[in-house]
Design a protein around this nucleic acid. Structure first.
Length: 379
RNA sequence: GGGUAAGUGCGCCGAAUUGGUGAAGGCAGCGGACUGUAAAUCCGUGACAUAGAAACACUGUAGGUUCGAGUCCUACCUUACCCA
């Protein structure tokens, strides 16, 4: 299912075949938590204009609203949001982290207070798999605990061991669900998730343990949650040698353009992050010359496109001055255009990464763009 | 001409108990943050200054009462409304 087509150092150019189409890696998955890209971008935009390969949705959010039963009745997420490409659903594990004040963790699973109406929600490995099966995503993520940083070694160790037990339960439940005639996508894939906070021994031990479990891919979770960037890169370097070479590797929730370039350099294939969409809605745009705050006065009468090197529908049609105006006057179109630009940028970034790995020029690409894309755009 | 009400820091709005620390807060402007989305959100922002201290400045204007005045008194100015 996963083939490495080319390699340049540790960087891999791959292809992952799924029932919803082939994914060219490295890939950036576009985050539409509640079956929608925030900022008003639809699956039609993603497909026709933004070079999106994979859309990511969230188990917890969709369970809360509109409920997975509703989506199941509507024929699954693909039909529901009219997206025929691959979909990855996150398991709700990140909400164990982000809704820290609203949940309680037990061996059987996690008790949440809904962030919408406060009602009690229980989610364990089986529930997460059942919901994701209803959603009928291409790839389901294992239900894990994303441990906060910093965390005690003893807590992280116990949490890792529980996450392993949860993965075994996820695997068993998914196999059962995939065998049911009533299941919409009976070829749903499961990705296991590595945890261990920033402790090398826990990370490696956990990776060695979960690679024994038959998953379609493996993710590194629990990073970019407050630790310094060099610590994140260090953890990737520690874990990567123990990740199967014939399966995709997914760095969850990461990251900045520079983070992605650096992680690919260290052997990662899949990414997702809210950063392009969230920052766009907040007026921060990514360009090939660095980061641009479009609300800044400097762009008040700037007739140039956001990025002269960019081929996105926004840069082909509108000026910086116009987009700035939309933001300053709180027109919804501003957010939409900004999100479209940033997603196109991320999808083009991974496209360029793939080309450079194929051509064996990834090291030069990385040296040039890793610092450049993290800098502030001049002008 | 007479009467009533009101004037608050940086453009606008606006709070301030029976007078009691150098006047809350909001908007706008300007800048920043954001990493498996409780986020179209949050933070900073009078001026000056690298920063701190000192100094300077504060309720239309000018006086007065008082230990102490945005709050009380007097005059004037401005605005709104009412009566001629």
């Amino acid at each position: 299912m996963f083939k490495v087509l080319a390699q340049d150092g540790a960087a891999r150019r791959g292809e992952f075949e799924t029932v919803h189409g082939k994914i060219q890696t490295p890939v950036f998955m576009n985050v539409g938590t509640s079956a929608a890209i925030k900022g008003g971008v639809s699956s039609v935009d993603l497909k026709n204009e933004l070079k999106c390969q994979v859309e990511l949705c969230n188990t917890y959010h969709l369970h809360v609203r509109p409920s997975d039963e509703v989506i199941y009745k509507m024929g699954g997420l693909h039909k529901f949001m009219n997206w025929d490409g691959p979909i990855l659903t996150d398991s709700g594990g990140f909400q164990v982290f982000s809704l820290a004040s609203l949940r309680k963790i037990k061996e059987e699973g996690v008790y949440f207070s809904s962030h919408v109406d406060g009602r009690k929600i229980f989610m364990g490995p089986e529930e997460s798999m059942q919901i994701q099966s209803h959603l009928a995503s291409t790839i389901a993520m294992a239900f894990d605990e994303c441990v906060e940083n910093p965390a005690e070694h003893s807590y992280s160790k116990a949490s890792c061991e529980r996450t392993t037990r949860w993965l075994l339960r996820c695997k068993a439940e998914m196999d059962r669900l995939n065998s049911l005639e009533t299941t919409i996508n009976r070829h749903q894939l499961l990705f296991g998730i590595n945890q261990g906070c920033t402790y090398d021994d826990l990370r490696v031990e956990h990776m060695k343990r979960i690679r024994e479990i038959d998953c379609a891919g493996f993710a590194i979770g629990g990073l970019a949650v407050g630790e310094p960037t060099d610590v994140m890169y260090h953890v990737i370097e520690q874990v990567e040698p123990y990740m199967p070479k014939d399966k995709p590797r997914y760095l969850m929730g990461v990251g900045t353009p520079s983070n992605i370039i650096e992680a690919v350099y260290r052997g990662i294939d899949f990414f997702d992050c809210v950063m392009p969409s969230r920052n766009a809605r907040h007026g921060t745009l990514f360009t090939w010359n660095g980061i641009m705050h479009i609300k800044n006065k400097a762009y008040e009468t700037d007739a140039k496109p956001i990025d002269e090197q960019c081929g996105c529908p926004v840069c082909k049609n509108f000026s910086r001055a116009y987009v700035r105006h939309l933001f300053k006057s709180e027109e919804q179109l501003g957010g939409r255009l900004a999100v479209m630009h940033n997603l196109y940028f991320y999808n083009t970034l991974t496209e360029k990464i793939r080309e450079n790995i194929e051509q064996g020029t990834y090291t030069e690409f990385r040296s040039k763009y890793s610092p450049l894309l993290a800098s502030k755009c001049p002008e």
